[in-house]
Nucleic acid binder design. Structure first.
Lengths: 268, 268
DNA sequence: CTTGACCCTCACGCTGCGTGAGGCCCGAGA
DNA sequence: TCTCGGGCCTCACGCAGCGTGAGGGTCAAG
């Protein structure tokens, strides 16, 4: 009948409270051979001697510095392990992880802004990229209306990773397409004709790759808005008088060619 | 015989190169239901449609921001999950991890210094704590001689966590014990007597708790050094003439009482 | 003799895949 | 037509460091 109160050694529970580690951790370190008790009672109880506790204490110290168990083992067991070197290596790793996390944090900031503001550009940048017709309030208003849709989310995710230059490229491409649309209307391209349908498809693809995936049904709704919304109508009619209507009619016709009833089309 | 080259969908390999993720990751996301292909060929090949790839792309974006798969699933599937909130929560977590890592890094710095310098105190602090006899070079010289021993390592680990106040307490305790030793010698306590043995034990305990665990054999070596090293001898003899020798003889006698031959004692 | 607090040994779970093992499928050349 | 090489499939273990029971002995006190 061994006496657990004398100083033959401490049980796991006693060590655990003294060192502030869990019993399970002591079991684990015993299992992997990192720090084992040199004694066991007849019943199998672990008994940690003073020297064992000393070793455990060192394990705790290095674990609090974030070292892995293998590295700790090397420090404790290999007399030729250079401790400062090992610690410096650890410090380097920690610095790298800090760096990574700081980049993550910056990325999160950008994404949060993208979701809340919609455009990560200053008012000046917006004006210089989208032209003087652009109203800096539009992204905020769009967010008010569409902020809880999947499309807005996809739009926000994409914009978070876009630089001003990329926005410029998009704006240029949009302006180019609008010119092409205006020229087509001028040269008598009829809504429903193969040429018009092709242009409608080009519009859908560019919109999809610039903002968010656009289905044909959604495109129909968009075309109606181009015509009915004063701001949009003014924009398109500013390119060519009647372009908003021509575009709406072209989209409608293309939808019909794809077996969609434009008058029944719904967003989403 | 399905044609894998048309746009019914992309195989895992094609998606993997396009999105820059491993095939295994695609398998995993399929397994856990985060992003599954909507088609399979007759042979069981996964076929990702354009919509599937869109979803995968979103997964990649949020994974690069460090979000867990469950949180990503919530963002993608639950229309009522507030994305900015989820991102802010993530940012908070990241900030906490950065904090923890920065504390780790500071702790590593302290430990590296402890191993390399031995004492993390300025020369002024050392002088005010250990008195004017103290030579600031001693820690560096001790490191030169003992830097690759387990004892130095334990000493360094302990000093890394000691504040100037704690060093002051240790210095006071040491000075107190030295006074007690001097008084004992003055009052005629004989090396080998029970009183002397008790004092030797007290010395060993205080040393062990202040610097590193000291065995009786090591204590013998220490006693010899106290007597033979000019600096140590001067220190002890400065307290009481002959104290270095008295202490060495007391330690020797106590060792003999514990069946140790002091003339054969070895460090370590 | 019983009770409650400790102790033991399995053994699965967690996070997000990496890394084979063993085997079927597909397109192209001999 | 046979074969070959590359791609795809489904298991299933591994990892890092324990957390968390499950099921069952042990110890000291009443």
């Amino acid at each position: 009948m061994p006496d657990l109160t004398d100083d033959d050694g401490l049980t796991v529970g006693q060590v655990s409270t003294r060192l502030g580690v869990t019993v399970r951790a002591l079991h684990h370190w015993d299992e992997v051979g990192l720090a084992r008790p040199s004694l066991r009672t007849a019943a199998g109880y672990r008994l940690y001697t003073v020297a064992d506790v000393e070793r455990l204490y060192r394990v705790v110290v290095y674990r609090e510095l974030g070292l892995g168990l293998d590295r700790i083992r090397a420090i404790l067991d290999d007399a030729d392990t250079d401790v400062p070197d090992a610690l410096r290596a650890q410090r380097t790793q920690v610095a790298e992880r800090i760096n990574r996390l700081q980049q993550l944090s910056a990325g999160l900031d950008r994404m949060i802004d993208a979701h809340e503001r919609g455009l990560l550009l200053t008012a000046e940048q917006q004006a210089s990229i989208f032209g003087s017709h652009w109203n800096p309030d539009w992204p905020a208003r769009a967010r008010q209306r569409y902020g809880d849709t999947t499309q807005w989310r996809q739009y926000a995710e994409r914009s978070a990773s876009r630089s001003p230059e990329e926005w410029q490229a998009i704006a240029d491409a949009v302006a180019g397409l609008e010119r092409v649309l205006g020229d087509a209307m001028d040269s008598g391209v009829i809504p429903g004709s193969p040429e018009a349908n092709q242009l409608v498809e080009r519009h859908r693809e560019m919109f999809s790759s610039s903002y968010f995936p656009l289905t044909r049904q959604m495109q129909v709704c968009l075309g109606r808005m181009y015509e009915s919304d004063p701001a949009f109508a003014a924009h398109y009619d500013g390119i060519r008088a009647g372009l908003a209507t021509w575009l709406r009619r072209s989209i409608d016709a293309s939808a019909r060619a794809h077996s969609i009833d434009p008058d029944a089309a719904t967003w989403q």
